[in-house]
Design a protein around this nucleic acid. Sequence first.
DNA 1: TCATTAAGCGTTG
DNA 2: CAACGCTTAATGA
Length: 231
Amino acid sequence: MVKEPVREFVETSSWARGLTPTQTERVLHDVSARAYSKGATVCVRLTPSHEWLGVVEGMLKVETITVTGNAVTFAGVPAGSWLGEGAVLKGEPRPYNVIAMRDSLVAFVPRSTFIWLLEESHPFALWLIQQLNARLGYYVALVQSYRLNDTTAQVAFCLAVLFNEELYPTPRRRLSISQEEIGRLSGLSRQIANQALRELHERGIIQVGYGSIEVVDLPALHRLAHGASER
DNA sequence: TCATTAAGCGTTG
DNA sequence: CAACGCTTAATGA
């Protein structure tokens, strides 16, 4: 059986709500956890996807390295969320590296358990469909944001996603993240990210702290992120 | 030409 | 010590 924080994390995860006690019991039996320090690699690209990952504490990011050695960050994954369903489902190697952005505790559910859940539990299957659908919607919106919006709106989009409850179910107002990482996540330089954050602050949408960002007006952030550049 | 970026460096929390 | 602000040279639309 696993340690307390991991047990609680699994039991309070949204997908666990629809499980029978027996099913939950098996997941708790099979799940493992490991701590990673900041900057450590959790999963290596092109290695087999044996596990489904949950972020118990801290924050992870998903990235690839280009041939020239530049990192392209695809997503930041704050505590409370699960990732890697796609690769586990397909039984294919990891398409990306997973890196710890801060000191993090990560839970691992074996692929066999994941597949078993999918076959045994109708609620779990439904949850998974909704999860994948949310991801799909996110990427469609991301392309739209990238093509239509100015840089400030792109940063707004990036933040709106990080604070989006459907994608990342643990609600929070403040997030510890550097401006450099915001830049990486939104595909912009540190300078532009900083400029955008200042503008968002001036509009009263966020508060910027040292190495952290707090959302003051989430609806406004959402509007800015999705609105077709109104002013 | 003008905007944006990476890199370096001094300052600060 | 990491995050931030600022400067500068390179890059590119």
